[in-house]
Simulated assay, not measured.
Amino acid sequence: MGEPARPHLVVLSGSGISAESGIQTFRASDGLWADHPIEEVATPEAWRRDPERVLHFYNLRRDQVRRARPNAAHKALAALEKQGFRVSIITQNIDDLHERAGSRDVLHLHGEILKARSTVDRRMQYRLPRGGIALGDICDKGSQLRPDVVWFGESVPHFGDACEIVAEADLLLVVGTSLAVMPAASLLDYAPLDTPCLLVDPEAESLAPPGVTRLAQPAGKGVPQLVRHWKRERRLWVPETVLES
């Protein structure tokens, strides 16, 4: 007989978890996005119109990500994995905070800001351990490099992979996302019918769709509480004591 299947937690994380590490969201009224309308820095049209401005904007964001540090939520999820649970993270975030916390199975739906990619072949990717991207930086095929992120209006190449991961979940944990960005928000529809889904967010009461259990707490508080329960019981469940606290 083979080993029993490990409990499989699938996490869908959004900008709220990174915001607790100091990375502000594009919907915030302050921060980098406030002075840069989306259509001017985060669309294919913006890139064609003014690539230098787009590169400058993402260089600023890249510096912000490098300064940020994983918070208690990132660390708790990594610790759960070390305890023998299977933890798959599907993140809408383009930072590397999950990886720096120690998580090993992370799928970036919207790309990774610490990578550049070719403008003629998206498979040609280059890590950016330091510095940014400037006009004139080219790929091995001689074309300009761009941030390896999914801009508004572009397809999400890893969405199919994400659907397959969600379909294998024993429990689906949604953290720090408004569930308003498509197609990521539709991932909940791919979970097995008997798989419980739990949303951790300060605005969970108003954000959670029907059938999703709500935990109205910041990620840095709610996720560690849940992980402590799961580690102690060696199983994935929705503990009432946490929901009542």
Rank of each mutant, 00 (worst) to 15 (best):
V223P: 02
S103C: 08
P218Y: 01
I90K: 09
A208P: 03
L109K: 01
S13I: 00
S13G: 12
H98V: 13
V212A: 04
E99S: 12
S103H: 10
A169M: 10
L32Y: 12
L179E: 06
K82I: 04
Q83T: 07
R53C: 03
H74D: 06
F26T: 04
L236R: 01
P44T: 00
W230R: 04
T213K: 06
L173T: 00
V238T: 11
C197M: 14
L173I: 01
P157T: 09
Q92D: 07
R235W: 09
V156F: 11
V242R: 00
T177D: 02
M1I: 11
G136V: 07
P192L: 02
H74Q: 07
L199Y: 00
V200A: 03
Q92T: 11
G160L: 08
A208H: 01
L173P: 01
R234W: 06
E154H: 03
F57I: 04
F152P: 05
A191R: 08
V174D: 00
H229I: 04
H8T: 15
G176I: 03
A5T: 14
V200E: 01
R66W: 08
S29A: 15
L236V: 11
V166M: 08
G31N: 08
T25V: 03
E205M: 01
D137T: 06
R6H: 14
I138W: 00
L236Y: 01
P209R: 01
R127E: 13
G22T: 05
G160V: 07
W230A: 06
E39D: 13
P7L: 01
Y58A: 13
H74T: 06
L97G: 11
A167F: 08
Q24R: 15
E112P: 03
E45V: 13
H108D: 05
L145C: 04
L236P: 08
Q83L: 08
Y126F: 15
H108V: 14
L32I: 09
A162P: 02
A216M: 09
T25N: 02
R49Q: 14
E154N: 04
V174R: 00
D170C: 02
S143Y: 13
E81D: 13
W230L: 07
G176Y: 00
L207S: 02
P218N: 07
A219L: 06
H158M: 08
D96N: 11
V242A: 06
I17G: 00
G160R: 13
E233P: 02
D96Q: 09
G102W: 14
V41D: 14
F26D: 07
P129I: 10
Y58L: 15
V212I: 02
S88H: 10
V106W: 04
L171A: 02
N71H: 09
E45K: 14
R228G: 12
Q144C: 05
D137R: 02
I138T: 12
G220W: 05
P196R: 00
R69H: 12
A73G: 15
L215D: 01
G222D: 00
H108W: 10
P129E: 05
W237V: 07
